[in-house]
Write a protein that binds this DNA or RNA. Sequence first.
DNA 1: CGCCAGATTGACT
DNA 2: GTCAATCTGGCGG
Length: 156
Amino acid sequence: MIVEVEAYYGPEDPASRARKGGDLRRVMLGDVGVALIYGIHRQWLLNVVAHGEGEPGAVLIRSGEPLEGIELMRKFRGVDDLRLLTSGPGRLTRAMRIDKSLHGKPVYVKDHGLWIEEGEEVSPRIVERSHRIGVSEDLPIPLRFYVKGNAYVSRK
DNA sequence: CGCCAGATTGACT
DNA sequence: GTCAATCTGGCGG
C-alpha cells in the first residue's frame, strides 16, 4: 500500500528530470499512467507519469506498507525488519524487484508484472504534506504527501 | 567516450 | 551527524 509520494513537474521545477532533455523528459511528456524508472545512487526509483495537457510530470512512489509477499521481500532486501522493507524509494524498488525493464510500461493493467490497484480510500484528513526530500532545490510549495502516523513513511 | 551531478542508503564516528 | 559507495543518464567533445 502506497503511503508516501512526491510530485514532480516540468522545466519550471528545479528538481525535475524533465528539466533536461532525453528519454526521461520524453516519457514524462508522454502517456499518463506509465512507469517512469530511472537509476540514481545505485537504486532504481519508481515514478508514475501524471500530468495535464502538454505539461510533463510524474509522481515518485517513495514508500509503501508491506501487505503481501513479505517473506519474498525480506529475501530481496536482505533484511528482516518489516520497517526497513519498503520505507524509502530505493528500498521499495529493491523489495519488489522493480528495475529498468518496467520503464515505460502502463501500471493500470496487469500485463507487465507491475501494476497499481485501487485500495481503501484515504481520508484527506490523514494526509500530511511537506517539502520534498533529498532535492537540492525545491519549489516553494510542499509537494510530498504521506499518510500521517504510518510507520512505513520514510521520514517524519 | 569521458565527465559529473544526483528524487539514496547504510555503515561508521 | 557525517560520508562514501557506486551507477544512470544527459551532455559536451
